[in-house]
Design a protein around this nucleic acid. Structure first.
Length: 885
DNA sequence: CACTCCCGCCAATTA
DNA sequence: TAATTGGCGGGAGTG
C-alpha cells in the first residue's frame, strides 16, 4: 500500500517536500544521508495548527530543537496529506487537504495520526524495500525524526523493531543502515528456526491456548536456567559491532520483537494473542509475573505490533475465547522461507561477502540445511584472528588429497543421503514433507540433516541400492584446489542422473549453498581418531585414483529448488541462469565417489545437491579439508559403500546394538561394523562459516531401504563453524574414533541423528558432535561400547535425542559463543542412557512436537538454554535418529 | 470500561 | 559531561 501511495505521491509531493519523498523513493539510491535536508521548507509557519500543537510548542519551546521538530512536522504534513488524499479509504484523516490545515481543529492530529504504525509507514516509505545491494542507505535518526516530525524516541521504537528483523542495522551513533527487506526472508527463517527451538513445542499446542500456557508453564520450569533474555539470535551481532555491544542491557524491544515474531513463525495458526505473547515473553525473562510487568509488556507488544503491522507482517485480529475476545495478531507475512532466490540473492547482505570481509572479527555462518533452509549467522569472535587464521590456513593448504578423499566420502555420504532421503520420503511421504516444509513450524531449526519436514529432502526411493558415488561438480569457485582438478570427474555426473534416473530422481540430499559438499567416510571404527587422520590423508592420496571413479554428482532438482541460491557472497556469483542450472544438476557440491567400487556407479548422486552457491570456499575450504581429512581417513571408508549395504550394516548394527531406541533395527543382521562416514560440506559462499560433517555411518543404517520407517534415518552430522575448525582440527568423531568400540558404529549411527541446537549454532561457539566426547581425541573406549552403560554424565538433551546424543555445553550460552559447545552423540549402545532414549523417535516427532516435552524434563541441563535448545533440535532430528527405529 | 498506545521522564550507555 | 538510547509506565484517546 505504501508503495502504491508513494508512487502516486511522489509526483504530487511538492518539491519542497522532496527531500523527503524523493529521497525515499528513489532513494534507494545512494545513501541518503541528506545532510540536513529538512530545513528547506520549514521556516515558514510557526503557527501551530492545533491547540495541542500549541501546547506542545509552548512546552517544548524551551528547546530550540523542539521547535525545529515542530516545524518539521509541519513540513511533514504535506506528505501526510498527500497520502491521505491518495488513499482516502485509508484511515480517517482529519485533514483532507493542506488547505484544511489551516484549521487547527481539523488537523488536530488524532491520535491515530500519530500512531507508531503510521509513523512507521512513513518511515518505511522513505526507503526502498529492496535497495540495490550496491547502495548503502544510511539513515540519520535526527534527520528522520525531524522529517517525520516526531521525537527521536519514537524513531527508536521503530528502528529497534526494524533492527530486530534486520531491515536496518545500526552503524553508528545516530546512523542506521537501511537494508530493506532483502534479508527479511532469511531473518525470518532464522527466527523461525530459533523459535522452533524455543517455542516449538509450545506452539504445537498453540491453538489451545491453555495448552500453550500450560506447556509454557512447564517449560518455564525447565528452562529457568535459560539464557534468559539473551537474544536467541542477536542479529545485531552480525554487525561485529555488536560483539562489544552485547553487553548492553538487553534491548528488550529488539529482543521482544524477535521473540514475538518467532511466536508467529512457530505458531501453526499464525495467530498470537497479546496476552499469551506477553506471558511468554515475561516468563522467559523470568521477570516477576506481576501485573504491572504484564501491562508494560503488552504496551511494548503493541509498539512492536504496530511496526510489524506497518511492515505488513502481521495484522490485528481478535480471537474469541471463553473468556471473551482477546486481541491478537495474525501473521500475514511469508510463512515459508524457502530461500527465495531474490531473498538470498547475492544482494542480501548476508550473502554479500562484504560483511565477512568488512568485519574481520566476525565469522559468518551460513548454513543451508536442506537447501531450503539456510541459516546465516555472523559470529563475532573476540578478535579478528579467527578469520585471519582461517584464511591463512586456507591459503596455506591447498591440498588436494584431502579433498579427494573427501570427495569419496562425499560420494558415500551422498549415497547415504540419498538413501536417507528415500527413506524419509517413504516414511513420511513426500507430501508430508512438503507440507511440513511449508510449515515453518515443522521444520526443524538448524537441523542440518534432512528433515522429513523439508521438502528438499525428499528423497526418491532408490530402487537400487544406493551407489556410492556421485559426484557433483564442484564449482570452480569452491575450492582453490579444486577437487575437480585433482580428480577429473567424468562429466558423467549428469549421466548418472540420466543413466539412473531411477535411482535418484529427486533425492535431494542436503542442499548446501555451498559450492562443495564433501562426504567423508571413515571407515573405521577401529581407528583412533588420531590414526584416522593420518590414514585419511593416505587415502587422500588414494583418492586421486578414486576420483577417476568419481562421477559427477547429480543434483536433484528438488533439493536444489529450495536451495535456490543462497546468495552467496559475492565473490562469484554465477549468473542466475547458471545457478539454476547448477541447482539442477551441477551442484557445487562435489561429491566424490568413493573409490571403492563398490557398487554401482549409479549410485547416486542424486542427491546432489547442492546449492549452487558459487563461491568461495577459500579459506574455509582448506581448513575444512584438513580436519576433515583425518576423519575421512578411514581406509575402509574409502571404499564406496553400497548404500544398501551400508544401510544393512547400519541396521545390523542397530539391531546388534542394544540401544533401546532403535526400533527399526534392521532386520538384517550383518554385523559389520559400519564404517563411519562423514559428509563434509565445505563452507562455500553460502555456508561460509559452517562446516558440516555428516557421518555416513548411520545413515545407511538409518536408511534402511527395506524399511519404510522413518526413524531409520539418522545422519550424523556436525556443523562446525569454520573458524572453529580452524582452531580445532576435528570436530566430529563418530564412533570410529575408538577402535574401542566395535559397537561404536552402531552407536555412531545412533549418534548420527543429530540435532543442533539453535543456541549452539547461534553461538559463535563451535559445536562438536561426536559419539564420544570429542573433547578428548582419544575416546574412552568404554563409553561407547558399553550398551549398558548408564547415561553419560553429560546432559541428556532431549528425550529423544538423548539416547543418541547428549549435548554438553561447555560454556556459555549461545550467543556468546566462545565457549565451545559439545554435543556428544552418545553411542547407541551406550545410549541407553536415559529411559527416554528408549523411546523410539518417531517421524512424527518431527512433525509434531513430541510430547516429549515432558521428557525434556529429564534434561539435566547445566545450561538451560542450550540444553533446551538441543533438545528441541534433537527432537527434530529424531527422525534421523537412526537407532530409534 | 477495556483497548491501545502516545508521551516523555529518566536511567543506562556512549561519545 | 553531554548526548544518545531506550525502559517504562502514566494516563489519554478510542470504540
Amino acid at each position: 500500500e505504501n508503495l502504491f501511495d508513494r508512487s502516486r505521491m511522489a509526483p504530487k509531493t511538492p518539491i519542497k517536500n522532496e527531500p523527503i519523498d524523493l529521497s525515499k523513493q528513489k532513494g534507494c539510491t545512494p545513501e541518503r544521508n541528506p545532510i540536513t535536508p529538512v530545513k528547506i521548507i520549514d521556516r515558514p509557519q510557526p503557527d501551530p495548527w492545533t491547540p495541542t500543537a500549541n501546547l506542545k510548542m509552548l512546552v517544548s519551546a524551551a528547546s530550540p530543537d523542539m521547535r525545529d521538530r515542530e516545524k518539521k512536522k509541519e513540513l511533514f504534513r504535506p506528505i501526510e496529506n498527500s497520502e491521505q488524499s491518495d488513499t482516502p479509504e485509508s484511515l480517517q484523516y482529519d485533514i483532507v487537504d493542506d488547505s484544511t490545515v489551516d484549521e487547527f481543529e481539523k488537523q488536530r492530529p488524532s491520535r491515530k495520526q500519530k500512531s507508531l504504525g503510521l509513523l512507521c509507514q512513513k518511515f518505511l516509505a522513505r526507503y526502498p524495500n529492496y535497495p540495490l545491494s550496491t547502495e548503502k542507505t544510511t539513515i540519520s535518526l535526527d534527520e528522520v525524526a525531524s522529517i517525520l516530525g516526531v521525537e527521536r524516541r519514537r524513531i527508536y521504537d521503530i528502528v529497534n523493531v526494524l533492527e530486530s528483523l534486520q531491515l536496518v542495522s545500526r552503524v553508528a551513533k545516530n546512523q542506521y543502515c537501511w537494508h530493506g527487506r532483502q534479508n527479511l526472508s532469511q531473518t525470518l527463517k532464522m527466527l523461525q528456526e530459533a523459535g522452533e527451538m524455543q517455542y516449538g513445542e509450545l506452539m504445537t499446542f498453540q491453538h489451545k491456548e491453555q495448552d500453550l500456557e500450560y506447556k509454557f508453564g512447564e517449560r518455564k520450569k525447565e528452562t529457568i536456567p535459560d539464557s534468559g533474555d539473551k537474544p536467541l539470535l542477536d542479529f545485531s551481532e552480525q554487525d561485529c559491532i555488536s560483539a562489544s555491544a552485547n553487553s548492553r542491557k538487553d534491548k528488550s524491544l529488539r529482543i521482544m520483537s524477535q521473540k514475538f515474531v518467532m511466536l508467529f513463525l512457530v505458531s501453526k495458526t499464525k495467530i498470537v494473542t497479546l496476552d499469551i505473547a506477553a506471558k511468554i515473553l515475561i516468563e522467559e525473562t523470568q521477570d516477576t509475573v506481576d501485573h504491572s510487568k504484564f501491562k508494560t509488556k503488552v504496551r511494548r507488544l503493541y509498539d512492536i505490533a504496530n511496526v510489524l503491522t506497518s511492515l505488513g507482517l502481521i495484522k490485528k485480529v481478535h480471537v474469541t475465547e471463553e473468556r471473551g475476545r482477546k486481541p491478537a495478531f495474525k501473521w500475514i507475512g511469508p510463512v515459508e522461507f524457502s530461500g527465495k532466490t531474490d531473498e538470498f540473492g547475492g544482494h542480501s547482505p548476508i550473502s554479500n561477502p562484504l560483511p565477512g570481509t568488512q568485519r574481520g572479527a566476525c565469522a559468518r555462518y551460513q548454513i543451508c540445511v536442506t537447501g531450503k533452509q539456510r541459516f546465516t549467522r555472523h559470529v563475532s569472535f573476540n578478535g579478528a584472528q579467527p578469520c585471519e587464521r582461517t584464511r591463512r590456513k586456507v591459503s596455506s593448504e591447498p591440498n588436494s588429497p584431502h579433498q579427494e578423499r573427501q570427495d569419496e566420502y562425499c560420494s558415500k555420504m551422498i549415497n547415504l543421503a540419498a538413501v536417507c532421503k528415500q527413506k524419509i520420503e517413504e516414511d513420511t511421504g513426500t507430501e508430508m514433507i512438503l507440507n511440513s516444509a511449508r510449515n515453518s513450524s515443522i521444520t526443524s531449526p538448524f537441523s542440518l540433516l534432512p528433515v522429513p519436514g523439508d521438502s528438499d529432502f525428499c528423497i526418491n526411493p532408490l530402487p537400487q541400492p544406493v551407489f556410492p558415488v556421485v559426484q557433483a561438480e564442484v564449482p570452480s569457485l569452491s575450492l582453490p584446489t579444486d577437487i575437480r582438478s585433482q580428480a577429473p570427474h567424468p562429466p558423467a555426473a549428469s549421466k548418472t542422473e540420466n543413466g539412473k534416473p531411477t535411482l535418484v530422481p529427486s533425492q535431494p540430499f542436503l542442499c548446501f549453498p555451498s559450492s562443495s559438499l564433501f562426504m567423508l567416510c571413515s571407515g573405521l571404527q577401529e581407528n583412533n581418531l588420531s590414526e584416522t587422520l593420518p590414514t585419511a590423508e593416505d587415502k587422500s592420496n588414494r583418492n586421486a585414483e578414486a576420483q577417476a571413479a568419481i562421477r559427477p554428482a547429480v543434483c536433484q532438482k528438488h533439493s536444489f529448488h529450495k536451495c535456490t541460491l543462497p546468495s552467496p557472497p559475492v565473490d562469484d556469483e554465477e549468473p542466475a541462469a547458471k545457478k539454476q542450472i547448477m541447482e539442477q544438476s551441477d551442484l557445487p557440491l562435489s561429491l566424490v565417489v568413493p573409490k571403492k567400487p563398490f557398487e554401482s556407479p549409479k549410485a547416486e548422486s542424486t542427491q546432489g545437491s547442492g546449492c549452487p552457491s558459487p563461491v568461495h570456499l577459500g579459506a574455509y575450504h582448506l581448513e575444512l579439508a584438513s580436519p576433515a581429512a583425518p576423519e575421512a581417513s578411514n581406509k575402509e571408508s574409502t571404499k564406496p559403500l553400497d548404500c544398501q549395504e551400508q544401510e544393512k550394516r547400519s541396521q545390523n548394527k542397530d539391531a546388534d546394538e542394544p540401544p533401546p531406541g532403535n526400533e527399526h533395527t534392521s532386520k538384517e543382521n550383518a554385523n559389520q561394523p559400519v564404517q563411519p562416514q562423514y559428509l563434509y560440506v565445505q563452507p562455500t559462499a553460502g555456508l561460509n562459516s559452517f562446516n558440516l560433517l555428516f557421518s555416513a555411518n548411520q545413515a545407511p543404517g538409518a536408511i534402511s531401504l527395506a524399511s519404510n520407517q522413518l526413524p531409520s534415518l539418522s545422519i550424523p552430522c556436525v556443523m562446525v563453524p569454520s573458524a572453529a575448525l580452524a582452531s580445532f582440527p576435528l570436530v566430529c568423531s563418530p564412533s570410529f574414533t575408538s577402535p574401542l568400540s566395535p559397537v561404536p558404529d552402531g552407536s555412531f549411527s545412533a549418534a548420527a541423528s543429530m540435532n543442533f541446537s539453535m543456541s549452539s549454532l547461534a553461538s559463535t561457539t563451535p559445536v562438536f558432535i561426536s559419539t564420544t566426547a570429542l573433547v578428548t581425541p582419544k575416546v574412552s573406549p568404554t563409553p561407547s561400547v558399553d550398551p549398558q552403560q548408564p547415561a553419560h554424565p553429560t546432559l541428556h538433551l532431549s528425550p529423544v535425542l538423548a539416547r543418541s546424543c547428549s549435548a554438553v555445553k561447555l560454556d556459555s550460552p549461545v550467543c556468546m559463543g566462545h565457549p565451545v559447545t559439545l554435543l556428544k552423540l552418545q553411542q547407541p549402545s551406550s545410549a541407553p542412557l536415559t529411559p527416554k532414549s528408549i523411546r523410539p523417535a518417531h517421524h512424527e516427532a518431527f512433525f509434531k512436537t513430541p510430547g516429549s516435552l515432558g521428557d525434556s524434563v529429564v534434561w539435566k541441563k547445566n545450561e538451560g538454554n542450550q540444553t533446551r535448545n538441543a533438545s528441541s533440535v534433537q527432537r527434530r532430528l529424531e527422525i534421523s535418529g537412526t537407532s530409534l527405529d
